[in-house]
């Protein structure tokens, strides 16, 4: 594909049209300020997580107000995906795909919940509320003690128990 494009551009050059470069070069440089204004990309290692913190007590309140209607009480039995499940059931006929087994990293929970939840008003929770609701869900998943709080550092340090159980089908070209 790249070779084919180069040859198209080479033809332009030969026919005498004014194409000084072999690339259009029309992109507008992004200023440092514009870069700083971009919504953060939150990575698996926690880079991009915002300041602030939230605890599981507030998280329970947020969950009951805004999440339970679809995800069910304590993250089970709702119309939306199950959030809390039995980790032992993964290799059975009826697996539970809760957060504890299906999320290999903690920080992407922040990214996804902030951007998409609740779906009727996405990107409406405060950073404190997002940290809090994650703390509550990880408490229900037996990954945090009762009443624990989360911030960027603490969320990044959580080792999700099923992390090493993922295999990658795609293998990069050498």
């Amino acid at each position: 594909m790249r070779n084919r494009l180069s040859s198209i551009l080479a033809v332009l050059l030969l026919t005498g049209n004014v194409v000084a470069d072999d690339a259009p070069g029309l992109g507008m440089p992004l200023s440092a300020q514009d870069q700083a204004d971009l919504p953060a990309v939150i990575m698996a290692d926690g880079s991009g997580l915002p300041d602030g913190e939230g605890n599981a007590l507030l998280g329970e309140q947020v969950f009951q107000d805004k999440c339970m209607i679809c995800h069910g009480p304590r993250g089970m039995g709702g119309s939306a995906l199950e959030l809390v499940g039995d980790r032992a059931l993964l290799a059975t006929a009826y697996p539970d795909k809760g957060i504890a087994v299906y999320w290999p990293y903690g920080p992407p929970l922040f990214d996804y919940i902030r951007r998409s939840m609740p779906p009727s008003v996405p990107y409406s929770l405060s950073n404190e509320e997002v940290y809090a609701v994650i703390a509550y869900l990880l408490e229900l998943s037996d990954l945090l003690e009762s009443g624990a709080y989360l911030d960027a550092d603490r969320l990044s340090m959580i080792r999700m128990p099923n992390r090493d159980n993922f295999t990658e089908v795609y293998q990069p070209v050498k």
């Binding site: 992407p108 990214d111 993922f166 089908v169």
Partner: peptide, 24 residues
């Protein structure tokens, strides 16, 4: 990034309980 769409949806649970991702 290991976003939700990299590692939770669009991944497949195998017989042995392991999970395949990046099965593009």
């Amino acid at each position: 990034q290991m976003s939700r769409f990299d590692t939770v949806s669009y991944t497949d649970l195998q017989k042995d309980g392991s999970i395949e991702r990046f099965s593009f």
